[in-house]
Design a protein around this nucleic acid. Structure first.
Length: 580
RNA sequence: GGCCCCAUCGUCUAGUCCGGUCCAGGACGUCAGGUUCUCAUCCUGAAAACCGGGGUUCGAAUCCCCGUGGGGUCGCCA
């Protein structure tokens, strides 16, 4: 039997970090077993689903390198995914209404389901009353409904146009879910009530569509987050009662594997709202320090009333959060793959880190330490359901960041340059343009010199922007930091300035404008002058070349700028500081 | 509240199935040193955990029970 796993996102937003892990594990298991990995879009919530969201989720998966064998076709500039799908589509549930309806009718005729006519508000009120009274609420099956018997009268009313939902006749028996991670999970008879299969708008509910589609699409292994565990008995109950329309065979029950949940460090659920929370906190801190909501509104261009509502917690608008974040210079917490991508994370690091949230290879490295660095190909070769953990995990951003830094450090210089440039083009087009202007387009030798210097200083692609700043400005476009000038050029009667002047002369006469050779020149000069190290010369030059006391290595800095630019910057600096 | 799941350093975890080699190992973070022209990288070292209580056993992080704590779920959301 060919293993078929699936990831079935609801297109109501971006791909969440937890969803990415689910998809990854499903993908890895299918690869490992020589099976197929499928994507199905669960767009049965008419109000919240969107095509853009579906497209975005597919693109995020593709970006992570999680390709599907079956599912929607996604055309990307460099490849197309989903073209070789088995003919079990369509893969959008909204396009499968005919199938669901055929099953609904069969189920009703066999007395396994029945139309119900209660009003949603009334049921809601009953439910709330039960909760208030600390009683368990269960839908009460109408007296005229008999399991196994077609409710003709109800069917007639329903087909006659009366508003209704269709409910399942829940079996009165114990249900055992044989979970591959958790073991047997038993639910006593009578715990399930007659839940809804088809909503009043004619769309299937999640539970119903999942069971129908997993059967019809040949899904053999359902791997998903533990939040679905408590719903699984419903699915098993349906599988026991449903019969395929095409073959007349009973539904099969796939293997289940429920994986642990992922939370924030504080134990809260990771959600888009975290961004609003962070922005709100930063704004309130700013106000506490003397700013005001009016000033914030003015600075961000936000509508003052909208901002006040946001601050009061009356809405969690992403736009407001982002405007505040940009103005207050805070990074909003990333929770979706799209966020991490924008923040300059690489897919390798996300894949690796997220794999470790609830799974572990349990292998040692040659040095005896636990193996925890690997890529998706390793996962495809070694993934096993037995090694999925049972405990919920907290998402430690610091560790992810460290993984990302390592992944970046592991790139070749050329690869880093190419990918950083592509990232800039997408998320920092202004810096991208400035860089092309200063160093030439594409991966030029000088760009390579720059990125070599940037790589060990960057934990993310965005991080690389700061140490690259000196290369993005014109030779007369940057300001000299007064404190740095004072300390490194003016102090001690201007020894720094004198060193700068001498270094400038030596550099002018120097033929080989290469980072290593330039470093050698500075070292040699320090030695000749009897200095304990190259520090004073390097610092004087650094301030002159970049305006600041902090920059990449001096040789690299010089090499990136090039002879002309470097000399011009030194001259400008010397001219701005009077000789003593 | 009913039902269900879980429980090793601050965090991710190895070890748990097949009790002894575990005064519990690794990683991230933290702290202290060191290398280096600044920053970063890098190197070395340290502190840091078997939720509690009962059993079973010569012996329990590992098996059993109870408690406690955390989580999920109970929608015409998925």
């Amino acid at each position: 039997m060919t293993v078929v796993t699936r990831f079935a996102p609801s297109p109501t937003g971006h791909l969440h970090i937890g969803g990415a892990r689910s998809a990854l594990f499903c993908w890895a298991y299918a690869k490992k077993q020589g099976g197929r990995f499928m994507i199905r879009i669960e767009d049965t919530d008419q109000a919240r689903s969107s095509d853009e969201s579906a497209r975005g989720i597919l693109e995020d998966l593709a970006w992570l390198g999680i390709d599907w064998d079956d599912g929607p076709v996604l055309r990307l500039p460099d490849r197309t995914i989903g073209e070789g799908s088995r003919p079990v589509g369509p893969f959008f549930q909204a396009q499968r209404l005919g199938i669901y309806n055929a099953y609904i009718e069969d189920l009703c005729r066999r007395g396994v389901a029945y139309p119900a006519f209660e009003n949603a508000d009334e049921l809601d009120a009953k439910r709330r009353a039960a909760v208030a009274a600390k009683r368990t609420y269960r839908y009460e099956r109408p007296a005229d409904v008999t399991p196994g018997r077609f409710s003709e009268d109800r069917w007639r009313r329903a087909t006659g146009g009366e508003p209704h939902v269709v409910r399942f006749v829940a079996p009165h028996e114990e249900i055992v879910v044989a979970d591959l991670v958790l073991g047997d999970v038993r639910i006593a008879a009578g715990e399930l009530d007659d839940f809804v299969l088809r909503k009043a708008d004619g769309f299937p509910t999640y539970h119903f569509a999942v069971v129908i589609d997993d059967e019809l699409m040949g899904v053999t292994h359902v791997m998903r987050a533990q939040e679905h565990l408590a719903n699984t008995p419903r699915h098993v109950a349906m599988q026991r009662s449903f019969v395929r329309l095409d073959t007349g065979r009973p539904f099969r029950t796939p293997a289940y594997a429920h994986m642990p949940l992922i939370f924030n460090m504080d134990g809260s659920k990771m959600s888009k709202r975290d961004k609003a929370k962070a922005a709100r906190k930063a704004a309130k801190d700013a106000i506490a320090k003397g700013s005001s909501s009016g000033a914030l509104a003015a600075a961000t261009g936000l509508n003052p009333a909208t901002l006040d509502q946001f601050l009061a917690g009356e809405n969690d608008s992403l736009d407001v959060a982002q405007a505040l974040g940009a103005h207050l210079k805070i990074t909003l917490p990333e929770v979706e793959i799209w966020d991490f991508r924008q923040s300059g994370y690489v897919p390798e690091a996300i894949i690796n880190f997220v794999s470790l949230l609830g799974w572990n290879p349990g292998m040692k490295q040659p040095d005896g330490k636990d193996l925890e660095k690997f890529d998706r190909h390793f996962l495809a070769e070694h993934f096993s359901i037995e090694r999925i953990g049972r405990t919920n995990a907290k998402f430690d951003r610091a560790k992810l960041l460290s993984f990302n830094a390592d992944a970046i450090a592991g790139l070749t210089d050329d690869e880093f340059a190419r990918r950083w440039l592509a990232w800039l083009a997408e998320y920092e087009p202004d810096a991208h343009a400035r860089l092309a202007r200063a160093l030439g387009a594409g991966v030029s030798p000088r760009l390579l010199a720059l990125t070599r210097a940037l790589k060990p200083r960057a934990k993310t692609f965005r991080d690389a922007l700061r140490p690259a700043a000196f290369a993005l400005v014109r030779d007369d476009e940057y300001a000299l930091d007064p404190a740095a000038v004072e300390k490194n050029l003016r102090a001690n009667g201007g020894t720094g300035r004198a060193l700068l002047a001498e270094a400038r002369a030596r550099l002018d006469a120097h033929a080989d404008w290469d980072a290593a050779a330039l470093n050698g020149l500075i070292e040699a000069m320090a030695k000749e002058r009897g200095l304990p190290n190259a520090g004073p010369i390097a610092q004087a030059l650094r301030v002159a070349l970049t305006g600041s006391a902090v920059s990449p290595g001096l040789g690299e800095t010089l090499a990136v700028l090039g002879r002309e630019s470097a000399l011009r910057r030194m001259d400008r600096c010397l001219a701005s500081i009077a000789a003593p």
